[in-house]
Every structure is written in C-alpha cells, then in structure tokens.
Computed example of a mutant assay.
Amino acid sequence: MNHQYTRREVFCGNTCHDLTRFWEHEIGKQARQRQSEEHRLGRSALRKLREEWRQKLESKLRLRNPEETEKRLSPN
C-alpha cells in the first residue's frame, strides 16, 4: 500500500485533537472580539452626532432655498 494514501489520524494521534482544539479556541476568540467591537460601535456616539449634523445641514438648506431642497428630497 502506498504511504501517500494512509490516513493522517493514525500518524498524528493526540496532536490532531490538540490542533483542532487550538484552532477552535482561536476562532471562538476572534468571534468574541468581533462581537465586542460591533457592540462598542453600536454604543458609539459618532453615529448619533453624524445624524444630528446631517439634520442641521438639511434644515439650513431648506431655509436658504426651500423649492430646490424639496425637489431634491422628493422622489420622482
């Protein structure tokens, strides 16, 4: 029988299980970090500030030229 086709599990024994556990742990750690970052961004005030500034700009534009602003905001 050619050694190329023998199963690797026979040769690596516990090492394969250790590697599997290691990578599962790493993947879990990365998933937790990603969730933590998404949660942090969700609590960030930056989105709220950007929305407030956008609303202020829109209101200033409406005061300057209401007809053009209405044309831009209304769907055609």
Score class of each variant (00 low, 15 high):
Ser36Tyr: 09
Glu52Leu: 13
Glu70Arg: 12
Arg54Ser: 11
Ser59Leu: 15
Glu58Thr: 05
Gln35Phe: 05
Glu26Asn: 04
Leu41Met: 15
Ser44Thr: 01
Arg43Glu: 11
Trp53Arg: 15
Trp53Ala: 15
Gln55Tyr: 03
Glu70Phe: 02
Arg72Tyr: 06
Leu63Tyr: 04
Glu51Ile: 14
His25Val: 04
Lys60Tyr: 13
Lys60Ile: 12
Lys29Cys: 02
Gln33Ala: 14
Gln55Asn: 06
Glu26Ala: 14
Glu67Gln: 07
Gln35Met: 13
Ser36Glu: 09
Pro66Arg: 08
Arg64Ala: 10
Glu26Tyr: 02
Arg43Ala: 06
Ser59Asp: 15
Glu67Ala: 06
Glu70Gln: 10
Arg50Ala: 12
Arg54Thr: 13
His39Asn: 13
Leu49Arg: 13
Thr69Ser: 05
Leu46Ser: 11
Gln35Lys: 13
Arg72Ser: 06
Arg43Leu: 14
Arg62Ser: 02
Gly28Asp: 02
Leu46His: 11
Arg62Pro: 00
Thr69Val: 15
Ala45Ile: 09
Arg40Tyr: 07
Glu68Cys: 05
Arg43Lys: 15
Leu63Pro: 00
Lys56Gly: 06
Arg62Ile: 00
Lys60Gly: 03
Arg47Val: 03
Lys48Ser: 14
Gly42Asn: 02
Asn65Cys: 12
Gln55Leu: 10
Glu67Tyr: 11
Ser59Tyr: 09
Ala45Ser: 14
Glu58Met: 14
Arg43Asn: 10
Trp53His: 15
Glu70Ser: 04
Leu73Asp: 06
Asn65Ala: 14
Gln30Asp: 04
Ser36Met: 08
